[in-house]
């Protein structure tokens, strides 16, 4: 398969977080069993001098294995909060549904709108895009992670109950010690000049230090 042949584990280790990095785009094939994690990991190990040289890629494959195992243990409970939010808010403080401007890619924020459109049009988002749009939904718009997870699951080619719902819970902090946040510096760093991160008025809701964002967004 072409995508298997294109895997570059060393480059992946160096730049996987970057939008232009050497990510594999194998997820829809792994999700549907066209390829197995075992096959991919053996192929990857055969490409490098020692397995350690492919540590980042092998660890990401392990994340998929981990989430599948959690799903095996928890079953449909992964659809509910596995733990309380660590944001100072109760579940009832979060809205049940995604806002209409978000779903229509009309928030005015260039990063948010382009990401929504990209998901709708391609069925794929880079991991950084997924993390950041999930954080935007849950922390900036204060919407229950379940609403975002259901939306993303429906549109992704790799939509997977384990990786999707548990990643959303990780961002939300209902399956992590703290919520995932990003700021404008971080957004600009990984998205390689694609976005300004600004709203229509030229100001960015992400432009602040992490301390300031924590104060602004959490109770």
């Amino acid at each position: 398969m072409q995508r298997m042949a294109a895997i570059d584990p060393i480059a992946y280790g160096a730049n996987r977080n970057h939008y232009d990095g050497a990510v594999t785009r194998l997820s829809p094939y792994l999700r549907h069993g066209v390829l197995s994690l075992k096959e991919v990991s053996e192929h990857v190990i055969a490409l490098v001098p020692t397995p350690r040289s492919a540590d980042k890629l092998l660890q990401e494959l392990a994340w998929r294995d981990y989430y599948r195992r959690v799903l095996g243990e928890r079953g449909d409970a992964v659809r509910e909060d596995l733990e309380p939010y660590k944001t100072g808010y109760q579940p009832s403080d979060y809205a049940d549904a995604l806002p209409a401007d978000f779903l229509a890619a009309q928030t005015g924020n260039d990063f948010v709108d382009a990401t929504v459109r990209e998901l709708h049009e391609t069925g794929y988002l880079h991991n950084q895009g997924r993390m950041k749009i999930a954080a935007y939904v849950v922390h900036w718009r204060r919407v229950k992670w379940q609403a975002g997870a259901a939306w993303m699951y429906a549109h992704l080619l790799d939509g997977d109950l384990a990786s999707n719902h548990l990643s959303w819970q990780w961002v939300a902090s209902t399956f992590a010690a703290k919520p995932y946040l990003f700021n404008l510096d971080n957004l600009l760093r990984w998205t390689g000049g694609r976005f300004t991160g600004c709203d229509a008025d030229g100001r960015s809701p992400f432009d602040a230090s992490y301390d300031e964002l924590n104060r602004r967004l959490f109770a």
Binding site: P28, H32, G123, A150, Y153, H155
Partner: peptide, 17 residues
């Protein structure tokens, strides 16, 4: 789940193999 048409097309392509 409101699965997208793209997802169905992807599965269809796999089944063609």
């Amino acid at each position: 789940e409101g699965m997208s048409l793209k997802r169905i097309v992807f599965m269809h392509e796999c089944l063609c193999e």
